[in-house]
Structures are given as C-alpha cells and as structure tokens.
C-alpha cells in the first residue's frame, strides 16, 4: 500500500510540473497550449536517448530541459503572432508531429516499440523500494523549487507584464512592453518545464513509447489547472494532486457498484471523473485556489 502511495505521489509531482508549465503560459500569458504532451514527449525522448547513449542522467535531464525550451521557441517563433484559437491549434498540431516522428523515426526513437531500459538513477544502489522513496523526494524537491521560482516570477514585474498581455496585448504594447519577446520567453520557460517533467517521467518509468504521449494527458493537466485555479502557481500545484487523487481514488469506488461488469465499472469511472470536474467548474469556476492580483509595490 505504501509503495502505491509513494508511486501516486511521484506521478502527481510530475503532473504538478506539467500543471505549473501550463499555468505559466495559460494562466500567465493567456496562450492556450494544447501541445503540452508534445513538449513532455520531447523532454522524455531527449533524456532517454541521451542517457541510453551513455550521457550521465543529470546532464541528460538538463539537456531535456533545454530541448523542451528549444522546441517551445521553435513551435512559437512562427506562430506567436497568431492569437487565441489559432495558436492553440498550432500547438495541438505540434504534439501530433512529435508523436508521429517518435513513431516513424525508428533509428532515433525505436518507433512504436518504444525505448525500454532507460537508466534509473541510483536504482541499483538503492533497490526498488529505496529508489521509489528517493525519486519521490527528488521530484517533490524539483517541484517545490520550480513552484517557488514561478511564484517569484508571478509576483515580479515580468509576471505583471504577462498578465497585462493576457488582458490586452495592444495596451501592454502601448505601455512600452515588447509583447512578442515576453510571450516567447514565457513559452520557452513553460516548454522547458514540460521537458523537465518528461525527463523525470522517463527515468522513473524506464520505458517510454509514442503511446505514452496521447492528447489525454494534456486534458488531465488542463483539468488540474482549471480545478486548482488558473493563474496561480499554488492552484496548479494543488490541482495536479487533486487530479491524481481523483483518477486513482475512483478505482476504489468500483466495489461500491454491485452488479456491474468490469467494462461498465471502467466506463462509470470515466463518467465520475468527468462529472467531478464539471461540478468543480460549475460550483467553483475560479478553481480551489483562485488567482490573486496583487497591487504593484510602491516605487
């Protein structure tokens, strides 16, 4: 039981990083990134391929972060001028491109077979149990560090510029802010965090394949950010744990529905997850931890 809780918490931590990444770009700059799973995949594959080629894991993870950010810049460079829905569609396309490349470029990604045997740091020293605890601590430490950094960013002038752009890009421009540049930086940081989450996931699971990066994951993260509270890092943090709690918690409700076949239980579980989030959105659309707009500090 304990190892299951440790596993779920680690997964939630990785979801948390993704939620923080999405919150920065969606809650901050108001850009919808439907391609989150794609940046997650870029990071996972980058770190997996590098470490399988013999690069030490910490360096591979850092490289994955950089690859994620680079992919973020690449994906937004041409499209950052697009607004709202158009940008969202391009990011959705990006995620599909990543998945198709991963499926078809066998020389690099081993195709649909995926990459097994990705090195797990210190696993041979610590054993499976020790590794699980160590990795939970590692993920949570990184999550808290990223959270604190993003909260700092959120409260800094940069965060205020982002929100100004979100509310009215033209107005921010009139105020002398270079909206394009700020959006590009925000997107790169966001994609870098998603890449970091991907790398952590790959080394934890030791196996990745194109099937891992289906759009469903992006939806889960959107649910996490929405239920936690868009625009506030603490909300994204909490939302990710709520989502895992829901996804895992509903497993144990099947026994309460006697007379249903296993297929029906699985279906009702999906209904339940959807229903819970509908309720959150209906009763508390601003999320559990709503955004707080702080006054700018006096000069």
């Amino acid at each position: 039981m304990l190892s299951y809780v440790i596993f779920s918490a680690t997964t939630a931590g990785i979801y948390g990083l993704l939620a923080l990444s999405l919150n920065l770009i969606w809650g901050g700059a108001g850009m919808v990134n439907l391609g989150l799973a794609g940046f997650f995949a870029v990071g996972a594959y980058a770190s997996a391929i590098l470490s399988l080629a013999g690069v030490p894991v910490p360096i591979a993870i850092l490289a994955a972060c950089a690859m994620g950010a680079a992919a973020g810049i690449g994906a937004t460079w041409a499209t950052v001028r697009l607004r709202g829905d158009y940008h969202a569609i391009v990011t959705l396309g990006f995620a599909e491109v990543v998945r198709l490349v991963a499926m078809n470029e066998r020389w690099l990604t081993n195709g649909t077979d995926g990459l097994p045997g990705i090195p797990a740091p210190l696993k041979s020293v610590l054993g499976p149990q020790g590794f699980a605890v160590f990795y939970l601590c590692l993920v949570l430490t990184i999550l808290v560090a990223v959270f604190l950094a993003l909260r700092r960013l959120d409260r800094a002038p940069f965060g205020r510029v982002l929100k100004a752009i979100r509310e009215d890009q033209d107005l921010a421009g009139f105020a002398g802010k270079n909206a394009m540049r700020v959006k590009l930086i925000a997107f790169a940081v966001s994609a870098g965090i998603a890449g970091l989450a991907g790398a952590l996931y790959a080394h934890y699971q030791s196996y990745i394949s194109p099937d891992h990066f289906q759009p469903l994951l992006t939806i889960y993260i959107f649910l996490a950010v929405t239920s936690g509270g868009v625009g506030r890092p603490a909300g994204a943090f909490l939302g990710a744990f709520l989502v895992i709690l829901f996804l895992e918690g509903t497993r144990f409700l099947g026994h309460l529905l006697p007379g249903l076949s296993s297929g029906q239980v699985a279906a009702s579980r999906e209904i339940l997850v959807g229903l819970a989030f509908l309720l959150v959105l209906h009763l508390r659309p601003q999320g559990v931890l709503p955004e707080r707009i702080r006054p700018a500090p006096a000069q």
Binding site: E248, R251, R269
Partner: peptide
Amino acid sequence: SEDDQTNPEAGVRAARKLIDV
C-alpha cells in the same frame, strides 16, 4: 479487474494498484 485504458501511462498506474494494494 483494472482498466489499462489502452494507454501505457494509465496502465502503469493501474498495475501499481494491482501489485501494491
């Protein structure tokens, strides 16, 4: 009986529950 959702990410979570819980 657990559901793998035809998805390795969800499958791993379900398998952990079967094994650990």
